[in-house]
Write a protein that binds this DNA or RNA. Structure first.
Length: 432
RNA sequence: GGAGGGAUGACAGAGCGGCCGAAUGUACCGGUCUUGAAAACCGGCGUGGGCUUGCCCACCGUGGGUUCAAAUCCCACUCCCUCCGCCA
């Protein structure tokens, strides 16, 4: 949630920032108008309530000295004012609810680093990396045997059964088998081990309450993108960011414990509403995938370094795996609701000849902390923490890129050496 | 699923209709004392909101209700603890 006080204090600045991501000035003016109406009604209600409290005190006093007539007339008076207070409060609450509902729909202010632009075409490519680049090698030329889509290779090798997944849960719910399933597990274990030095591993629930979804900004805006369990007021998590952000919901943390760095492996569920038919073959876009997430609660001063660390770790994994990737600075119009700044990592998948998003590293400033009410106490008083997070990494697409990149001329897949401790024999062959 | 107990400030723990936003202790911060520290003593010490910046309002698990007045009474819900049942 954006800071209402800031909107009041510097409306032009906030409106200009939000205009960069398509929020109209009229929308913000309506909020300011509601805010001032709310404050007027609130003042009225509060002053009436102050009168009721004062009279009630006098009633008590009168009773004590046995002045029953006085007590009776004071309490009648108080009852009448109480009626008016009730009316004023209801009016105030109504406006407050409207104001809050609108405020929850407003996205975060883009950071200074975020370039202008209304959609993904305006994202800025920051750099590319490929194996050997650091030694001066040119962008790789992929061989014909690497130009085979992962779903073809996977069928030949028997490591992915999309038909079976569709039978069980519908299309875009993949079922991995044999070495395909082992590869998935190897990747998660590999990543979690790499983060052990400074991130505490968490295994959160895979479902979250509506209230929890509100904290990260996934609700109310993105309800259509998520799976709901209405009977229990639960939602399947679209990312570990959801539970991790709410771990300290409502708490005031000691400055000394920050930054709190967490990592979690979870399944992620996404309905992908509105994306039907777009890049949906194989593992390009699926409803359920495993992801290792990195997350930090930090002070505003620590946020930049925490963001950079997550990005470096996500990139580090891709480099260790020897995959070709590029780094994109998202433009204002392509940012997620809660993000002030986001850097995406896209891996190059030679078989399908596409760049696939495998990580999104975001800085939320205090937007989520304000919603989740996570603060910290310091010498300068109590303030909201900053949250940052990023995938390291989302495995379905990495799995696809690995199978395509490391496909050999003989049709087998030879995985990179770093996976040896997690996978054993690195060659995936078709089983007789 | 059934029965009972509980939820109060950073923590422990009183209060059970009327100056209670809340006793007391611990922790924490400042001061006195001390060569220094500890102890002792003195003072301070929740969060958020509104406006005339001094005052007002809200918050005692959550949401309703009763009352002139609710941390205190009533109802519902959530979570925690104990016991019984069931179960991977």
């Amino acid at each position: 949630m954006i800071d209402l006080a800031q909107l009041r204090r510097e409306p032009d600045f906030v409106k200009a920032a939000l205009a960069r991501r398509g929020v109209s000035h009229e929308t913000m003016d309506a909020i300011l108008e509601l805010d001032s109406r709310h404050r007027r009604l609130l003042q009225e209600a509060e002053s009436l309530r102050a009168q009721v409290k004062d009279l009630s005190r006098q009633v008590g006093e009168a009773r004590r000295v046995k002045a029953d007539d006085a007590a009776e007339s004071l309490s009648t008076n108080s009852r009448e004012i109480g009626e008016r207070e009730r009316v004023a409060s209801e009016a105030s609450d109504l406006v407050a609810a409207d104001l809050r509902a609108r405020l929850l729909m407003i996205p975060n202010l883009p950071s200074r680093e975020t370039p202008d632009g209304l959609d993904e075409s305006a994202n800025v490519e920051v750099r590319r990396w490929w194996l050997g680049m650091d030694e001066g090698a040119d962008f790789p030329t992929f061989m014909a045997h690497q130009r085979v889509a992962h779903w073809e290779t996977a069928r030949e090798l028997g490591i992915l059964d999309l038909e079976a997944g569709a039978k069980l849960a519908g299309s875009m719910f993949p079922l991995y088998r044999g070495d395909g399933s082992r590869l998935l597990r190897a990747l998660s274990f590999f990543a979690l081990d790499r983060h052990r030095d400074s991130y505490e591993e968490i295994r959160p629930p895979s479902v979250a309450l509506t209230e929890t979804m509100m904290s990260t900004g996934h609700l109310p805006k993105s309800a259509d993108d998520m799976y709901e369990v209405p009977r229990d007021d639960l939602w399947l998590i679209p990312t570990a960011e959801v539970p991790l952000t709410s771990m300290h919901r409502g708490e005031i943390l000691d400055e000394a414990v920050l930054p709190i760095r967490l990592t979690a492996l979870t399944a992620c569920f996404r309905r992908e509403a509105g994306a039907a038919g777009r890049d949906t073959r194989g593992l390009l876009r699926v409803h359920e995938f495993d992801k290792v997430e990195l997350f930090a609660y930090c002070t505003p001063d620590q946020a930049e370094a925490a963001h950079a660390d997550i990005l470096a770790r996500a990139e580090g994994l891709l480099r260790e795996l020897g995959l070709t990737y590029r780094v994109l600075e998202l433009c204002a119009g392509d940012l997620g609701t809660s993000a002030a700044r986001t850097i995406d990592l896209e891996v190059y998948s030679p078989g399908v000849d596409k760049w696939l998003e495998v990580s999104s590293v975001s800085w939320f400033r205090d937007f989520q902390a304000r919603r989740a009410n996570v603060r910290f106490r310091s010498a300068r008083g109590t303030q909201f923490v900053h949250t940052v997070n990023g995938s390291a990494l989302a495995w379905a697409r990495v799995w696809a890129a690995l199978v395509e990149t490391y496909r050999q001329a003989d049709g087998t897949v030879r995985l990179p050496e770093v996976l040896a401790p997690y996978f054993g024999d690195l060659t995936i062959r078709s089983k007789p």
